[in-house]
Amino acid sequence: MLRAIHAQKGVQLGIGFAAGIFFGFLLQKGGVTTYDVIIGQLLLTDFTVVKIMLTATATGMVGVHFLRSLGLAELHPKPGSLGSTALGGLIFGVGFGILGYCPGTVAGAVGQGSLDALFGGVVGILLGAGIFSELFPKLNEIILNKGHFGEITWPQLLKVNHWAIVFPVGIGVICLLYLLEKAGL
């Protein structure tokens, strides 16, 4: 772990900004900062979004677990529960289908000049995040912790070495992408 670098706040803000530039550049080149491409995915006619997500996941999965084996990275899995993750995920999905961008790609869309992303998407997400912060204490009491399962990962759940999951998932992703190409999608 490069703890000396992690602890330098100013350097970290710079790294975050630089990583964002690369991320935004890649998203725009991938076409996923465009409403038409994202809606095409949700209408199941254009599989660009899924191809990028699956390739990124497979590549990052192998890389991050390799770094972890070398002691150079730690995992930060998010906690989950049915009340927060599943219900929130469905609400997010409805927003995804209406807006046609997500919080990362909406920023990229702003960068390429999409005004519906700026004045509609960004403003809407800010309002939504504000509404959620207002509702949070009540939601936390009644629903967010329902069906809590915590920060668990597949290898922990199945009690196996992480490579026993990384390899099959990696191969599964490659097979799925091959089938998508084969089907002409």
Binding site: V94, C102, L127
Partner: peptide, 29 residues
């Protein structure tokens, strides 16, 4: 749509990047 997404993203604790790419690659349930 943005409002719905803003509520949903914080409700679920992440979005298409944080959950969709970073979380799945960590094999988080």
């Amino acid at each position: 749509g943005g409002m719905c997404m803003g509520i949903g993203a914080r409700w679920a604790g992440g979005c298409t990047s944080g959950h969709g790419i970073s979380g799945t690659l960590q094999l988080a349930l």
